[in-house]
Computed example of a mutant assay.
Amino acid sequence: MGRNKTAWATTTALMVATLGVAAVPADATATTTTSTTAQTTACPTGWGSVAKTRSAATTESLTDVRTGRHACFDRMVVDVPGAGTSGLGYTVRYVSRLYQDGSGHHVPVGGGAVLEVRVAAPAYDPDTGQPTYPVRAGERLKGVNLTGYRTFRDARFVGSFEGDTQIGLGVRARLPFRVWVATDRVVIDVAHNWTGAR
């Protein structure tokens, strides 16, 4: 009787092991490989690196600049609460050197290439002149830590003059980027590479 129980237990264990193996599809490895291959080519391409501009202006004030890491790109978001979408204008372009509006002072920005991000919104209250984004010219952006980013290298506040705010975004190299507007914010995405591979 003891021998039969042992044989039965062994047979059951073998059946479970066999069923467990059979439950894994034969093409599981191929599916994973295909999925990985699809992921490496899933990033958007065609953004280009030429200047992007949108004409509009607001009297609402810029209050924050933040960044985030994504699978295909690094992102910067410029918050202008109350501006909606119609009042948000911008110019984003690569520059060889970045100069502050008004003073003409050169503001150094680290990285292999520099994007000048200009948003048509003041970083101060137009009625009082008080800063709404209290960072001095040339300083790193408040609360922005670029450690571990694949594309972004440096981010500096350049200044706010006559209703426009300038930011210097240092990137690894001259890479494709896009700019788009959502409610109360301007979004800048800079790709990790030119090929669209992750």
Rank of each mutant, 00 (worst) to 15 (best):
G46D: 06
W47L: 10
G48E: 04
S49W: 08
S49R: 02
V50F: 12
V50K: 07
V50M: 11
A51C: 09
K52H: 13
K52I: 07
T53N: 14
T53K: 15
S55W: 12
A57K: 15
A57M: 12
T58F: 14
E60P: 07
S61C: 10
S61T: 01
L62E: 12
D64V: 05
D64H: 06
R66K: 14
G68Y: 12
R69Y: 08
H70E: 14
A71G: 02
C72K: 00
C72M: 13
F73H: 14
D74C: 11
D74S: 14
R75G: 01
R75E: 00
M76Q: 00
M76I: 03
M76R: 03
V78N: 03
D79P: 04
V80E: 00
P81G: 05
A83P: 10
G84T: 02
T85V: 13
S86D: 06
G87T: 01
G89L: 09
Y90Q: 02
Y90A: 03
Y90S: 01
T91D: 13
V92K: 08
Y94V: 03
Y94D: 07
Y94G: 07
Y94R: 04
Y94Q: 06
V95D: 11
S96L: 08
S96V: 07
R97S: 13
Q100K: 02
Q100S: 09
G102A: 08
S103Q: 07
S103V: 09
S103E: 10
G104C: 08
G104F: 10
H105I: 03
H106P: 03
H106E: 13
H106K: 10
V107K: 06
P108L: 02
P108T: 00
P108K: 00
V109I: 09
V109N: 03
G110S: 14
G112T: 00
L115G: 08
E116Y: 05
E116I: 08
E116C: 04
E116L: 15
V117D: 05
R118C: 10
V119P: 11
V119T: 04
P122Y: 00
Y124D: 02
P126S: 06
P126L: 10
P126G: 06
D127R: 14
T128D: 13
G129W: 12
Q130C: 06
P131G: 03
T132V: 08
Y133G: 13
P134S: 05
P134I: 03
A137G: 08
A137F: 00
G138H: 01
E139V: 01
E139H: 03
K142Q: 11
K142L: 11
G143L: 09
N145Q: 13
G148I: 02
Y149A: 12
T151Q: 11
T151C: 11
F152G: 01
D154A: 03
D154V: 01
